[in-house]
Every structure is written in C-alpha cells, then in structure tokens.
C-alpha cells in the first residue's frame, strides 16, 4: 500500500523551456547581449551556461556576473549562432545543407558537443 504519491508532470521541462523562450522573445529578465557580427542577440545567462561549455567557462565565476555584453566571432561562424540560440530555448535545431557548416562552426566554438555530432551526421548524410 502506497503511503504517498509523487505526481510527475511529464511535460514540465518543455513547459518551462517554452516560457523561458517567450521571456527571451519579449526581453523579460534577459541579462546578456551577445554581439554577433555587430548584431545583438539577447539571452538569459542561466540558459546559456546550462547549454554550452563555452558559456559555462565564461559565466561560472564571480567575474561572469558583470558580463552583460559579449562579442562572438563574426565571419563564417556568425550565421550559426542564432539557430543555436533558438535550439537552446526550443530543443529544435534547424539545419539545412546551406546553414549546417556555419552551425557546426558555431557549435564547435560554443563547445556544444552533441550538436556538433548532430551537425556532422547531417552533413555526412547530405553527401550520401
């Protein structure tokens, strides 16, 4: 006989992520601006640090609290950052043969190893 019950809301993580994405789109509680080729992308440090080894190393220390603008490399990687930010907030990674190399380069820079592997698989499959 059960003494207690745990009620597990199976869609809770996606509900939280969806709300965080809406907060991002509305600029609510966003605390960092990523400058990519001069273009600003607003985001929440907590989401960035949870998803990327690069951001973890930037924000984990006390010095990270004061970082409110961060420049990311322009050039061929630049077009890959926005799809990665969308991925962090939605769990959906949009890839096409045209964009995959830039997403791969950006994911490598941000130390998002699983996304890197997914990009490699996508590029490999599109060759075959």
């Amino acid at each position: 006989r059960a003494l207690g019950y745990v009620r597990e809301f199976t869609r809770h993580s996606s509900d939280v992520l969806g709300n965080l994405n809406e907060l991002r789109l509305r600029g609510i509680l966003t605390d960092v601006t990523l400058l990519v080729g001069g273009q600003p992308l607003r985001a929440h440090k907590a989401v960035l640090i949870a998803c990327s080894g690069f951001f973890y190393s930037i924000f984990r220390g006390r010095a990270g609290v004061g970082v409110d603008v961060l420049s990311l490399p322009g050039g061929p990687e630049a077009g890959g950052f926005a799809p990665l930010l969308d991925f962090m907030y939605t769990s959906r990674l949009r890839l096409s043969p045209a964009t995959a190399p830039a997403v791969l380069a950006a994911a490598t820079y941000l130390q998002m190893d699983h996304v890197v592997q997914a990009c490699h698989r996508f590029i490999q499959a599109s060759y075959e």
Partner: peptide, 22 residues
Amino acid sequence: HEGLVATVKEAGRSIHEIPREE
C-alpha cells in the same frame, strides 16, 4: 509496503503559459 511512494504521471500542462507577444 510501508514507505512506498507511488509515482503518478500527469500528462497535462504543468505551469501557466506566458502569453505570446502580440
């Protein structure tokens, strides 16, 4: 059994939905 905790799955929405920006 004493101390047994049952897990019940809830498939519905877990929190409020922040309204989408117009």
